[in-house]
Amino acid sequence: MSKTFDRFASLAFLVLGVAFVVGSQNISASAYGSNVGPNIFPMGLGSLQILLSLRLFYETFKYKQEGEKEKQKLDYKRFLIILVAALFYVLLLEEIGYVISTFLFLLVGFQTMQKGKWLNSVIISGAFSFGVYLLYVEVLDGTLPGLPTWLGL
């Protein structure tokens, strides 16, 4: 159990609870034909969240001192590359189309997971992005952003 994380989390959830309670003040208090309005439920839940967050905050003081436990080494580099790539992927999806964005994301993803075997990576990402697009758009009549129009194809 990480004391720091739990403290931050309890504070974040506390803020969230307060936000919902405050926000529910702006919702009209009664609905037609009923004296129980749409504000009751979120307000009650928000208050409950506040109480629970306080409880968790209190609990963090009772955590046993964290020993010199060997910290697990986290692979932040790979993670950040893939996360940023995924972010670009979803933001560019509608701009450059499904096939290109998926192909690029997979290529970056495969190479980040493990370098080398470029040919395999290219073939698999190409097959996946084209395959999914063809199957979904042509066979199942779904909609995905196609190739960008500025390619002039």
């Binding site: 893939i82 995924a86 979803v90 997979l106 993803g109 495969f110 979904y136 779904g142």
Partner: peptide
């Protein structure tokens, strides 16, 4: 896992986009 992991991300993105058709949902 080299191939599996990025593909799960791609399948998640595809699935959510196919149903919602919105970048908001992808973020």
């Amino acid at each position: 896992p080299k191939y599996l992991i990025p593909m799960i991300v791609a399948i998640s993105v595809f699935g959510v986009y196919a149903v919602r058709v919105s970048v908001f949902d992808l973020v």
